[in-house]
Write a protein that binds this DNA or RNA. Structure first.
Lengths: 165, 165
DNA sequence: TTAATAACCTACTTAAATACTCGGACTAAT
DNA sequence: ATTAGTCCGAGTATTTAAGTAGGTTATTAA
């Protein structure tokens, strides 16, 4: 089992899409700036998200990504899964052949844990997150900081970043 | 967040101690054989378990390890923690400074997940595991296989292992 | 038509962690 | 004295994350 920035980035980026739904395609550059995630790394993550048909893309100027389904039908678990971060806690993939082809002493414990985590993450959709107060607060802050600064140069925005630290 | 064989081995080994409680110190060689875990690796894990005072050791012939507390007061969470496998799902250690010193969009989600996992693993003690049917079944199988074979040579037990695969 | 924009793709790199092995030192029972 | 055990440090192979770099292709707007 493993949950690192990879899966967290994926969920954060998808949530960013959900928050800006109805504004047309959102570019990865925008997400990169708002969420502080490397653009190239985002590209790799979105390649997987697209292959799992969680997002659809529009190429060319004004292009970007959009959710491929309604936000209430995309769960956090799906997103984490899409970038190959399994929340499976067993080492045998639930096969029960953990120890020389036989079941290890703690196999069922990890199965139970896996069920817990999976049902938790399955029960939370992007729509659920969008309406949460803590999410709204952060989103508002990000929108304030990154709107109207479209005409700043790269240097200016770097300075602004340093000033805010 | 991460849960690999490291944490699983630690819990398995501790459960082995709990199952053989009252039989005096249990050597790592015994655990290694029963649970199919490398002896040297077990040594490293038990160094951490000892530093966290979850086990006590007896050196010399007939020595080994024993639980340092009653099995109902040792939780799975404690064991996993002891070997440095944090089940913490946030990247910031709950600090909320995930994104340039500010809170990232999904911070609270991962906090919630951490709470879920932690309370689940905290609620399960070694005593709880010992009485479970699935654990008993596996333990019985292991005891049958590894008792009375004390006088086999290393080569014999290797052959036995291969035969069982 | 051309330039800019943004997705798309492949390959590489760095750093860290896992899951070991190996060799030896210390300790205590027989 | 030997042996069975813990204890300890170092080293290694493999994998993965996380990010760089450099390009190609599709689309829009000038």
């Amino acid at each position: 089992m493993r949950l690192t920035t990879k899966g967290r980035y994926a969920v954060t980026a998808m949530l960013d899409l959900a928050l800006h739904e109805g504004q047309g395609p959102i570019s990865l550059a925008d997400i990169s700036e708002r969420q502080g995630i490397s653009l190239s790394y985002l590209e790799q993550l979105f390649a997987k998200l697209r292959r799992n048909s969680l997002v659809k893309s529009v190429r060319g100027p004004g292009g970007g990504y959009q959710l491929n389904h309604e936000k209430q039908s995309i769960s956090v678990a799906q997103v984490v899964d899409a970038v190959n971060e399994s929340v499976e806690a067993t080492g045998c993939g639930r096969q029960g052949d953990c120890q020389n082809g036989e079941t290890c002493l703690t196999h069922h414990l990890w199965c139970d844990l896996s069920n817990q985590i999976h049902s938790f993450l399955n029960g939370i959709s992007l729509a659920d997150l969008v309406v949460r107060k803590d999410v709204k607060d952060v989103a508002d802050r990000q929108d304030r900081r990154h709107s109207g600064q479209v005409f700043l140069t790269a240097t200016d925005s770097l300075l602004a970043d340093e000033a805010s630290v």
